[in-house]
Write a protein that binds this DNA or RNA. Structure first.
Length: 798
DNA sequence: CAGTGAGCGAGCTTCCGCTTGACTT
């Protein structure tokens, strides 16, 4: 017999809580949700008031069985899932699936894992909040309806296996719209003027003209005027200022800072944070709360007093401003403030230190600044030069932590200014005019996209990283770097009353680790905007969230809310299926000078492609795939025609021909019936014999390195180098080599032992041959000729 | 895995949020 069974969501949490509660309590974890809508059809009985069909998923069956057995033996079952909509639903599903008795079931909540909080929770149990559960069911069902009705439309109208959903489709939309903004952005230039003066004490003073000057002629006029001008200080203003620390980390701000400061992807950040959490180093890493427990603030206080002294202490309570935050947990913080650093991998250490610093800094004093502004009059011009400086009077929290921002501009004007007096006259040493260009709005990184989604209230801490992965896996967007282009700019220098003009070159538009929409992402987005603008609008989530809140407050019935949404939505789904044309981003880009036929681009079954002629004609059309960096919207006729020069013979090596072509997996070389992939930087249209031989030799070398050793006793056993480190291959099965063993020193008997004692993983090589790609039949009987604003030509006519 | 852009037309894909391993070459 068991006295008390407590069920929480996370196993690491279970371990901690068990310590607080003592031996009368067994604490187990449900590992998140234990069941979900069936995947057969919709998993929802539309005809029957949207009754959900819940199924315990395969990977949860053993957990459910274990919990059920324990619950039978327990006197009291405490459902301690998180205090938010999803947590309430988990409690309810547990109650149903474990067939708990109302009289022996208690629902408790706590949003910090401290002994006090937990013991308090045990003293104040409540019942499951059915309204909140219904709000979750409405959320779940709405997402299923949207996802499982929109995706199949894309399979029919664009390409199989695509997906759409309330969250991912908006994420893609944000990127596509930003890309269009960038494409249509017209950069304008103007001249930024800065001057270097000499004070009468002989100090340097750098100042900037308050406005930029638009044209070069005006700029030269201004510089000519400066020749005869006197410069006089008209004002010296000192203003106190302060900086306050940022709040402790949430999931989203942690992802942003780890991206900026450490260069982590959002998935990487979450994986490292998970390890820190499991090792008991930090609190839970999926949270939207900036709140710290009183215990944590106390511990931070102690640490600050010890390390920095009273002057640096200023405890604070931060309030969450994020739309739709549910605050079931604390902010992400160290569990022990006494450890400012930990042992672990390099990544773990760096992320931990970031969290430690941010949390400690959040409880420290403001930094005190003094800003100085010096105004300099120009005797025969009505604009002024301004020198501004900033001096740190007291560092406060900056001693520990400094927050980064995405758009960190030039900080050349910061620092201490020399002491000067009003009415003092200055001598110029140099006045410089540099042509500057307005910059298009920045492209998104993974982390800045998460920030944007959070601002819109779309997605949750547990889904940010998976959403970012999904839109990349579907091919809608790609994270990559792109080289910039050279741009000339003019520099004018006035020195010794002479103006010298120079033209310089800079690289502009280079991007690193940015998200770019692919053609398929653009086509899918345009299709969804055309037909389901409301669902993928930026405020759709916010407006349904309001309704979920009303359900949670008991002011709205969940299936009525769903019905109100579903009826018109489903009608739109059906009419779209019936009437809309196939949408493949087709565009006629010109006429082939050789055949006189139309050259068109569109999304083909294998991705973006270009085509000469069309099916209806007697002669079959010719096809070619677009290459990296080429886009349906922007490819020119010349570039397209180039693609038909493949496959191309490059020369011969070892008496065999080398040819280059583009296949299903990108550009490749063929030599002696072997294939060699080209690198990202190689252009199949330009690659020469030398580079080709280099690639061939490189692959051969890699093949050689793959084999670490074999044994004369049994040629079937091979020790190989793989993507995840060395492993043993034997009988088409693979075996991991234990970490404490050195692969190169393994003996035959060692290998036999590993094979016998460790679990094998199947090698993928033996998989059944992939069936050729197939296309779903187009249902549209009549192609209504549609024209969207962005497509330059109409789709096919019949 | 490697030159396709379809045919008779099965049978498959897909959502968002909660949680971790198991698994991959």
């Amino acid at each position: 017999m068991i006295d008390n069974l407590v069920i929480v969501e996370s196993p690491a949490k279970a371990k901690t809580i068990e310590k607080f509660l003592g031996k009368d309590f067994i604490v187990k974890s449900s590992f998140g949700h234990i069941r979900d809508l069936s995947k057969k059809n919709l998993g929802i009985d539309i005809e029957n008031n949207y009754t959900p069909d819940y199924i315990v998923s395969d990977d949860k069956k053993s957990i459910v069985k274990e919990l059920k057995d324990l619950a039978k033996k327990a006197t009291t079952v405490w459902l301690a899932s998180d205090e938010d909509r999803e947590g309430e639903a988990i409690a309810w599903h547990l109650y149903k699936v474990l067939e708990l008795k109302p009289e022996k079931t208690k629902r408790i909540v706590f949003h910090e894992i401290t002994k006090d909080a937990i013991q308090n929770a045990i003293k104040t149990p409540r019942n499951i909040d059915e309204n909140l559960v219904n709000a979750q069911q409405a959320r779940r069902i709405l997402d299923r309806l949207v996802g499982f009705e929109l995706s199949p439309i894309l399979w029919k109208k664009v390409k199989p296996s695509l997906s759409a959903g309330r969250v991912q489709s908006v994420a893609v939309r944000i990127l596509v719209e930003r890309e269009r903004e960038i494409m249509s952005f017209k950069s304008e230039s103007s001249f930024k003027l800065s001057a270097l003066f000499k004070t009468h004490k002989g100090d340097d003073l750098k100042a900037e003209l308050e406005d930029k000057i638009k044209f070069q002629k005006e700029t030269i006029d201004f510089l000519n005027k400066c020749k005869e001008s006197t410069f006089k200080i008209s004002d010296v203003a000192k203003k106190p200022g302060k900086k306050s620390p940022a709040p402790p980390f949430t999931t989203s701000t942690l992802q942003q800072e780890a991206s900026r400061k450490l260069g982590f992807s959002v998935a990487q950040t979450m994986a490292v944070a998970q390890r820190l959490y499991e090792a008991g180093r930090i609190t839970y890493m999926r949270t939207d709360s900036v709140n710290l427990s009183t215990l944590a603030i106390g511990a931070a206080k102690k640490e600050i007093l010890k390390e920095y002294g009273e002057k640096y202490l200023q405890t604070r309570n931060f309030k969450t401003k994020t739309k739709g935050a549910q605050e079931a947990h604390e902010a992400i913080r160290p569990t022990f403030f006494g450890q400012s650093t930990i042992s672990g991998t390099d990544q773990e250490r760096r992320l931990y230190e970031l969290i430690w610093k941010r949390t400690v800094a959040s409880q420290m004093s403001d930094a005190i600044l003094e800003k100085t502004t010096i105004t300099i009059d120009i005797s025969n011009y009505n604009k002024k030069f301004i020198a501004s400086g900033e001096v740190l009077k007291f560092d406060g929290f900056l001693k520990v932590y400094f927050e980064s921002f995405d758009d960190e501009g030039d900080e050349d004007m910061k620092g201490l200014l020399p002491s000067v007096n009003v009415n003092e006259e200055l001598k110029y040493q140099l006045i410089n005019a540099t042509q500057r260009f307005t910059h298009y709005p920045p492209r998104y990184t993974e982390a800045s996209l998460v920030k944007k989604l959070e601002e819109l209230g779309i997605g949750r801490p547990s889904t940010y990283a998976p959403t970012i992965s999904t839109i990349q896996n579907r091919g809608y967007v790609i994270k990559e770097e792109r080289p910039g282009v050279d741009r000339e700019y003019v520099v004018l220098n006035l020195q010794n009353n002479k103006i010298i003009e120079e033209t310089k070159t800079e690289i502009t538009g280079a991007e690193k680790n940015k998200l770019f929409p692919n053609d398929i992402g653009i086509v899918v987005n345009d299709f969804l905007v055309d037909h389901f603008d409301e669902i993928i609008s930026y405020n759709f989530t916010a407006s349904v969230e309001e309704e979920f809140d009303e359900i949670a407050d008991g002011k709205m019935i969940w299936n009525k809310m769903i019905d109100k949404f579903y009826k018109p939505f489903h009608k739109k789904v059906e009419s779209t299926l019936e009437t809309s044309a196939r949408s493949v981003g087709e565009r006629i880009i010109g006429i082939d000078p050789v055949s006189g036929k139309n050259v068109t681009v569109k999304i083909g079954p294998y991705g973006p492609m270009v085509q000469i002629g069309n099916k209806e004609e007697e002669e079959k059309p010719k096809f070619a795939s677009l290459q990296r960096g080429q886009h349906l919207e922007s490819i020119t006729l010349e570039e397209a025609l180039e693609l038909f020069k493949l496959p191309r013979a490059i020369g011969s090596y070892e008496n065999k021909e080398i040819t280059v072509a583009v296949g299903r997996f990108g550009p490749y070389l063929k030599h002696n019936s072997e294939f060699f992939s080209l690198k990202k930087t190689d252009d199949p249209l330009k690659i020469d014999l030398n580079r080709s031989i280099e690639l061939i030799e490189e692959k051969r070398l890699k093949e050689k390195m793959r084999l670490i050793k074999t044994f004369s006793e049994d040629q079937g056993i091979q020790v190989l180098n793989g993507r995840w480190g060395p492993y043993i291959a034997y009988n088409d099965l693979n075996y991991k080599i234990p970490k404490d063993k050195n692969a190169a020193e393994l003996t035959y008997n060692d290998c036999k032992l590993i094979i016998e004692t460790t679990k094998a993983s199947t090698s993928k090589k033996k998989k059944t041959k992939a069936s050729p790609a197939k296309k779903t039949k187009v249902v549209a009987k009549k192609n209504s000729v549609k024209k969207s604003a962005t497509k330059k030509s109409s789709t096919k006519k019949k």
